[in-house]
Amino acid sequence: MADLRIDYCGIEFKNPIVTASGTFGFGEEDGEYTELSEYGGFSAKGLTRTPRPGNRAPRIAETPSGILNSVGLQNPGVESFAAEIMPELAKLDTHVIANMSGNTVEEYCEMAEILSETDTAIIEMNISCPNVKHGGLAFGTDARTVLELTEAVKKHCKKPLVVKLSPNVTSVADIAKAAEAGGADGVSLINTLLGMKIDINTRRPILANNTGGLSGPAVMPVAVRMVHEVYEAVKIPIIGMGGVMSASDALEFMIAGARLVALGTGMFVKPDLIIDVKQGIAEYMDKNGIKKAVDIVGTLELN
């Protein structure tokens, strides 16, 4: 019988499948369609230092095999999360990954301190949101900045710190190395790819924010390639994501080097996707005589 348990940053996850931040709210909504306990972990909606109402609608545009979104980090703020939301999430039989996004180094440090006092298992530091004017992506595209930010936040962080990487860079491996050098305990990738969709009749972008982040199956080959490059470049463990719609998709990420795999946009279409993905991974393991999920990770052989 396949053993889906896997270690990530010294924490045992009961299976390698987690949710991608921003696609699952704070769990209360999809919870009606899927038991959160089915997941190894749950990455909550991205938090900021103070509450953010987010961008104007339309916030979504459909594209071939994917979507563009520009929610703009709508969230109640880190303090409200720590006081009201996290205590409820802590009752669930799954690990919580709190995701934070800052405008300044100080904000990231303050949020890390606040979240360190909660029951979250891991803190995920988003340096790659394409949909906010300040911070976000600006932090994630320069290796020196990533190193300094990670070093600074680590001093205030008592939980494993995972840095979420942007694909909107020349070399994702260089950014991953900078995060590792700064003391990150893991990296997660990819965040969305910056894109635009135009209404040819109005000659305006569909999104009120003009640009948005591309996700869904359209980005998966890019994401798998980047996970492979990062796996070759760093020793810290990877959370891989980008367009997973099936067990075989999740397995591609694991073979490329991801220890955990996040589901995101795929859940919009299949709210119970987790069930199929877990079952498919177990069947694959049984068929190939693989006893532990970790034995799939990074088994890629290049041509």
Binding site: T23, E29, P53, A57, F268
Partner: peptide, 26 residues
């Protein structure tokens, strides 16, 4: 009516404006 993603309240893309300030604005 609005362009939707998940349809169940999780993804926050199908918002509309309430005219209120701050977090209750959408």
């Amino acid at each position: 009516e609005q362009r939707m993603g998940c349809g169940i309240g999780a993804c926050l893309v199908c918002t509309c404006e309430t005219g209120k300030e701050g977090m209750d604005g959408q």
